[in-house]
Amino acid sequence: MSVAVAEGVFVERSDGPRLIAGRRKSDGEMRFPMPKGADAALYDPVELAPEGKLWSYTVQRFRPKTPPYIGADDEKTFKPFAVGYVEFAGQVIVEGRILIEDPSRLKIGLPMKVAIEDFPTSTRGDVATYAFRPA
C-alpha cells in the first residue's frame, strides 16, 4: 500500500475507506479536510458516510500546471480525469478525483462511494489519495 497523500485525510475501515472532516464545536459547520494547525482545536474530527451523491462534475482535459500538480505524467502521457463534488447527506459536500472509465456516464445525483486511488507522482513515488467511484 502506498503512503497516504497526507495524514488525517482518510482512514481505512474494514468495510472501506472513510473521509475525515471537521465539525466546528461552536456551530456545527463541517469542512473537509479536518483543519490543521491553530484551527484544529476548534473542530472535532468526523468520519463521513461511505456513500454520497454526485453534486457536480467536470473532466480535466489538459495537464494541470506544475507546480502545484505533481502527477508522474507529462504533456504527452497525461490522461484526462474526472473530478467532482459528492454530497454526503446532512454532512458536507466534498471535492475529489473520480474513478470512471467513461465520464459520459456521470450524472448529478449519481450514487458515489469513497475509494482509495494509487496516484503516481513525479516527486514522492506512488501515493494513496481518496477518490470517488460510482457506487
Binding site: 497523500v5 457536480s56 462534475y57 494541470p64 500538480y69 480525469f81 478525483r97 448529478i108
Partner: peptide, 20 residues
Amino acid sequence: WYGETGMMLTTQFFAMKIRR
C-alpha cells in the same frame, strides 16, 4: 495535496458551477 493531485484549477470550478 489539493494542488498536487490536480484539483486546484479555476477552470474546474467554473465548469462545475455551470454544470450544476
